[in-house]
Design a protein around this nucleic acid. Structure first.
Length: 264
RNA sequence: CCGUUCGUU
């Protein structure tokens, strides 16, 4: 059984759902992991219908089972449905873990989810996940996306530890809200603390640079991109192109375009 | 053993 599960997992990861289903159908014995794995395959494919049917037909569920479906609803833009399922799970006495929170919260992308977000945040604290970096990172990100930059920053400051994701999430939040000065300031702080800038960092800083109309900043970022070997990154190149064209530096944009490696 | 957060247009 575990050999078949492993095989299914590989097929699901490669996107060969049909083959995974075939293995599943042929298995002499299946356990909860077989079901969870197949369900995660459906979710990955965006087939929430079939994932739900599988879920409804299961006579035993683990926290992973719930989390997979919650994550599916969250990912495919049904955060309300994800939240409902989360509440149902909670009522059944299943204790969510850090992955459940990350999956659920990843779908809270607009201010209409604010009350649910506050409720989930309460649960996070009650269950003692306020020191779990990944959970706090998603909370910071959610507050930003719900346009509550102040709550995001409060949590940011209260976190016992921060990593580069924490900084990037906050940085992006500032940039998206037009708080470009704050974004740059945080970027400086991040660098002084020795966090390596990533593609996420560059994208956020460039976006702030556009808002500020700061050509020098963009050029600084550009040289940092070269120094840190990110020239192969399509996201960054597009962000740089976007930056230069919005600064009316069409020539720089053209030069960059021709220097860019061919990416698909 | 299965589920895992941040980015350009």
């Amino acid at each position: 059984t575990s050999r078949c599960n492993f095989q299914m997992e590989g097929l699901v990861k490669r996107g060969e759902l049909y083959m995974a289903r075939k293995v599943f159908d042929k298995m002499p014995n299946r356990n909860i992991i077989s079901l969870n794995t197949l369900m995660s395959g459906y979710v990955k494919f965006g087939d929430i219908q079939n994932a739900r049917e599988l879920f409804d037909g299961m006579n035993a569920r683990t926290v992973v089972t719930w989390t997979v479906l919650i994550g599916g609803y969250a990912k495919y833009e049904c955060p309300v449905e994800a939240f409902k399922l989360y509440i149902e799970m909670y009522r059944e006495g299943i204790v969510p873990d850090h992955v459940t929170f990350a999956s659920l919260l990843s779908g809270f992308n607009n201010d209409e989810m604010m009350s649910q977000l506050l409720q989930v945040h309460t649960h996070v604290v009650k269950l003692g996940f306020e020191s779990a970096i990944m959970v706090c990172n998603t909370l910071v990100d959610c507050y930003c996306k719900c346009r509550c930059l102040d709550l995001a920053f409060t949590l940011f400051n209260e976190m016992p530890q921060r990593d580069s994701v924490t900084y990037n999430a906050m940085l992006t939040g500032y940039a998206n809200d037009g708080l470009n000065g704050e974004a740059i300031e945080l970027f400086m702080r991040m660098q002084n603390l020795g966090f390596e800038p990533s593609e996420f960092t560059f994208a956020a800083v460039l976006s702030a640079g556009i808002g500020l109309g700061d050509l020098g900043l963009g050029q600084q970022v550009h040289s940092l991109v070269i120094k840190t070997n990110f020239v192969w990154n399509a996201f960054i190149n597009n962000a740089l192109l976007d930056f230069y064209s919005k600064q009316d530096c069409v020539k720089d944009a053209e030069t960059l375009f021709h220097e860019m490696p061919e990416l698909d």
